Each structure stands twice: as structure tokens, then as C-alpha cells.
Amino acid sequence: MKLLHRQIFKELLKLFGLTVACLLGLILIGRMLQLRSLFLSQNIGFFNILQLFFYLTPFFLLLITPIATMLSVFLTFLRMSTDNELTALKANGVSLYRMLPAPIAFCVLCTLFTFFISMWGLAWGMDMFKTSLYQFARSHSRFALQPGVFNKEFPGITFYAHQVDNDTGELKFVFVRDQSISGASVVVVAPEARIVSSPKTAEVHIVFNKGRIYRQSGEDINILRFGSYSVRLDLGKLLGDFSFSEEKAKDMTFAALREIRNDPSIAPQQTAQFLRKVDTEYYKRLTLPLGCLILGMFAIPIAYVFRGLRQQYGLLLSMGLFLLYYSMFSLSVSLGEAGAIAPVYGLWAPNILYVLVAVFGIRFANQERSLPVIQWLGHLRGRWRVTA
């Protein structure tokens, strides 16, 4: 049995490493494509970019580790089932219960790893990411515009210049629309402007000459003429979601979240919405890591019961069940932040539901019986074939 457990554990580790590498690579590549315009316009080196994405890795690992755990367990037992290894072990008196120590130990390790990321790694990664990005912005960044194109790199601000000289910073026929001001819209039009970078303060100033300012507030429109006018931009806002000044609940450590829940007066924002986000994030950090253990155990009966199906169908089924879990989890997070449901109930509900299915599923799989819902689906499939 030690040899069997060792072999199962090795296969689980191999599949887990491969799954995490593939999913993490796809996410990072997608993120790079999303921010390609930022990296092309800023003087940031390739290794600096890799460093930034390294600091984002804990955030992505918190999301992909549960699915990697589930897929590793599912694919391992599905292969053993397809190769009739489970049947041979059953014939030699090895029940499914005796094979559980290896996947349980694997799922527990994945759960502990995810707990470490949830409690400390996530906050460390986000803090280092913001610090490094701000340092790059202060020491290397420059602001580049494309001529004849509406540039929307800064949230709430739209730039347009008919002619652009990025070497000298000279602009011709410039149009700027600023929608970052609440309740008002400001449009600046000028025949010429100049870009002035300030790396020490991580700011960019666009200085307009001899233009007009159109300010609309409600139904009122004001028009002002000016000789010189400057618009200040913070390079830290290039990524939008990563603000240097605003402290968000998802970037805090678990200890900080617990302290705010115990004493709301120390919260950086004294609003009901922020406190709801803190409460939701607190239970999210507790329940999501447990998803590794729960989904891993849930994958065993899925692979065992559906051994008669083709592998691609079983894989699609497992992915569908995982997406159902994440949909329920995401819906609970949204409802918790909106105050529609208490996070303690909404975020624990998916785990409790899948625990019940996993327990009954393993019991039925050990008895080589199909779940009643599977028998019902098979009956419907048979009736559909007869009708067709």
C-alpha cells in the first residue's frame, strides 16, 4: 500500500505542476496582452516586466490552485479507471477507501499552500507590485501618444493630437476630455501643447498654449480662454485598478481584515460599503483555500463513477462542475459586498454543498454504484436515443 500511495502521490504532483504552469502561463500572457500598450509606451525593461508579474503570482495562484487540485485528482483517477487499474485493485481487495490517504495528503498540502497565500502571500505580492510599479514610474516612465488616435490609457481622460513628436514632446491640434471630475465634463482644445515629464514625482504635465476650456456641469456650459494651461497626470493611474493612495480590502493581510472586523473605527474608510467588502474578503480568505480539499475529494467520485464515459466527456463534466462552484462562489462575493446576503452564509454554501456531494459520491463509488442523478441522466439519454 505504501508503494501504491507513493505512486498516486507522485502522479498527483506531476499533474498539479503541469496544470499550474499552464494556467499561470495563460493568465500572465493574457495580462501582458491586455497591458501591451502600456509596456510599449513606457521605458520599462523586459526583466522589470517579469518582476511585476512575479509579484502578481500570489493573486493568480489563489484562484487557480483549487482548480489545479481538482484537475490533478480527477485526471489521475480517470486514467487509473480507464486503464482498468481501479478494477484490478478492487479484485485484489483494495477498496477505494484504502486509496484515499494519498489524495487526502495531496489536497491537504494544497490547502495549506493556499492558506499561506491567502493569509500573507497575497498582501505581500500586491504591496511589492505597487511599490515596484511606482519606482519604475518615477525612474523610467515616459508618456507617449499616438498621432490621430484617441488615447485612453488614463482612466476617465481621453487624449487626441493630430501631430505628435514624442522625442521633443510637441503636440499640434490637441483635444483633451476629462471625465474624472464627478458631476462635470471638461474639454480642453488648443492648437499646440507640450508634454513635460517629471520622473521624480511620477507625474506628467501637458501644457496647453492659447486654447479654450469647455466645462459642462448639468445644463450649464462655461467657456474660458487661456494663454497657458496645464493638466497634471499621475503615472500610477496607468493600470487603473492598482491605486497607490486608496487602500483596498483585497490588498490587506488577513490579520488587518480581522482587526477591522473587531474594531471598525480603525478602517481606512468609514463607510458601510467598505466594511462589507472587508467582511466578504475575510470569509473569502477562509473558504477559498478549503476549496482545494473539497474539490479534490469531489473529483474522486466524478472520475470513478464516470469511468464508462469517454475521457473528453468526463473532463468537460469536471470543468463544468468546477465552473458551477466558482459561479456560486463569485455570486456569493457579489451579494456579500452589496449587502444582499451575509458573507458567512453565502461563501460557506458552495463548500458545504460540494462536501455533501463528495461524501455521498465516494460512498457510492466504493460500492461501484452510480449516483441517482447519473442513473436519471442515463435513463434520459436512453429515451432520447430511442426517440431519435
Rank of each mutant, 00 (worst) to 15 (best):
M1T: 08
I8K: 00
F16K: 02
L18N: 06
C22Y: 10
C22M: 15
G25C: 06
L28E: 13
L35T: 12
L35W: 12
L40D: 12
Q42W: 11
N43D: 15
L63D: 04
I67N: 00
A68P: 02
T76I: 07
T76F: 01
F77N: 00
R79M: 04
D83N: 12
N84V: 12
T87M: 15
T87D: 06
A88D: 07
A88V: 15
S95C: 07
Y97P: 02
A102Q: 00
C110P: 06
L112A: 12
L112M: 15
F113G: 09
G125V: 00
M128H: 15
S132H: 14
H140V: 11
S141T: 15
S141H: 10
F143L: 09
Q146C: 03
P147K: 03
G148F: 03
F154V: 11
T158K: 07
H162P: 09
T168Y: 08
F173D: 15
S180C: 08
S180F: 08
S182L: 13
V186I: 15
E192G: 04
P199M: 02
T201A: 13
A202W: 02
A202I: 04
E203N: 14
E203V: 12
E203H: 12
I206V: 14
F208T: 04
G211V: 00
I213E: 08
R215F: 05
Q216E: 10
G218E: 01
G218K: 02
G218V: 02
F226R: 03
G227V: 13
G227H: 13
D234V: 08
L235F: 10
L238E: 03
G240H: 11
S243M: 12
E246R: 13
E246W: 05
E246I: 14
A249E: 03
T253D: 09
L257D: 04
R258P: 02
N262S: 15
N262T: 12
D263F: 08
A267H: 05
Q269D: 11
T271D: 08
Q273M: 08
L275G: 05
D279Q: 11
Y282V: 02
R285I: 01
T287V: 12
G291L: 01
I294L: 03
L295M: 09
F298E: 01
I300C: 01
I300G: 00
I302K: 00
L315S: 02
L317Y: 06
S318M: 12
S318P: 05
F322D: 01
L323D: 07
Y325D: 03
F329L: 12
V333A: 07
G336F: 04
A340I: 13
V344Q: 14
G346I: 04
L347S: 05
P350S: 03
L353D: 07
V355H: 04
V355P: 00
F364T: 02
F364D: 01
A365M: 01
G382I: 06
W384K: 15
W384S: 13
A388W: 13
A388K: 13
